[in-house]
């Protein structure tokens, strides 16, 4: 889940775009013909919509107790049923979606900023490379979820701390990917030309290197979103995420464990939501990789 691997491409034919079109537009065009990408976008789009529209599409407060209505199966007045306190599962799962998406976006943003910064520094300035990469190696030696558990255990359970822990876990992995691209790009002739023309380090990084290092980074960030959502669910399943009664997919499932014989839907509903989110993001990532990072694509 946590490591960045050269995954196999899906058996999708990617057509060549006609020449003389802006590369970003051409990539976009290819993306919107990519079936896997579109399926992923659709799945993740549903979850993202639920997350954004949570205040308007849920009528019941996710934390309102109603002991008379406990353990209602899906259907009837409560569309997805109720839990052991009679709370509406629809409300809880939708608000849980919002929390998952917020955590995913935050972790991705942390990685986009710090992963790029550290990776670019290490790849461009050889003097800091050794120090930064040794620290990186050490952080990556820890199994991802174990390090996240350790850090949240120390910081205490809360949404903010989960974001921080996942940032600490995944930034080194992103930095490594950015560094790899920067090292290759630094030796390119157009970069040498910019150096010869007297461009400063900052200008070279910003205008010549980083824009070209974006493709593998975007692919990494889309998979990272999936890992972040999955890790958050795992942490809150273990009782290390947002503190109850705040609904998260992980803690709804953890609470449902005691009632799985008679009310299996308490586990099944957030579980399926989590699975569809991760599936959608993985498909999205596969599609992005096929289109943006053709080196990793298996030729058909």
């Amino acid at each position: 889940m946590s490591e960045v691997l050269p995954l196999a491409a899906a058996p999708e034919a990617v057509e060549r775009a006609p020449k003389r079109r802006h590369p970003a537009l051409a990539a976009l065009r290819r993306l919107f013909r990519h079936r896997l990408f579109l399926t992923g976008l659709f799945l993740f789009g549903i979850i993202a919509f639920l997350a954004a529209a949570a205040p308007w599409i849920t009528t019941a407060d996710p934390n309102r107790l109603s002991m008379r209505n406990k353990f209602l199966p899906p259907g009837g007045d409560y569309i997805l049923g109720t839990d052991n306190f009679g709370r509406s599962l629809w409300s809880r799962v939708v608000w849980g979606a919002q929390l998952s998406v917020i955590i995913g976006i935050s972790v991705v943003a942390l990685n986009a900023v710090f992963g790029t910064l550290i990776g670019a520094l290490a790849g461009y300035f050889r003097r800091v490379d050794n120090v930064l990469m040794r620290i990186n190696d050490a952080l990556m030696a820890f199994p991802a979820i174990l390090l996240a558990i350790g850090v949240t255990a120390m910081l205490g359970p809360s949404t903010m701390n989960v974001i921080l822990a996942l940032g600490i876990v995944y930034v080194p992995r992103t930095a490594r990917i950015v560094r790899a691209s920067v090292i290759v790009l630094r030796e390119m002739e157009y970069v040498q030309a910019a150096v010869a023309a007297g461009a400063g380090h900052w200008r070279i990084l910003r205008h010549h290197i980083l824009p070209n290092a974006m493709a593998p980074m975007i692919v990494q960030l889309s998979f990272l979103f999936a890992y972040a959502v999955l890790s958050e669910a795992t942490l809150s399943f273990l009782g290390l995420g947002a503190v109850p009664p705040t609904p998260t997919w992980g803690n709804i499932m953890a609470e449902g464990r005691d009632f799985m014989r008679d009310a299996p839907w308490i586990i099944a509903i957030p579980g399926v939501a989590l699975m569809l989110t991760v599936l959608g993001l993985n498909m999205l990532g596969d599609g992005l990789r096929d289109v943006l990072d053709p080196r990793l694509r298996i030729q058909q």
Partner: peptide, 8 residues
């Protein structure tokens, strides 16, 4: 396989 959380 890579999308189903193991605890689920």
């Amino acid at each position: 396989g890579i999308s189903v959380p193991s605890f689920f």
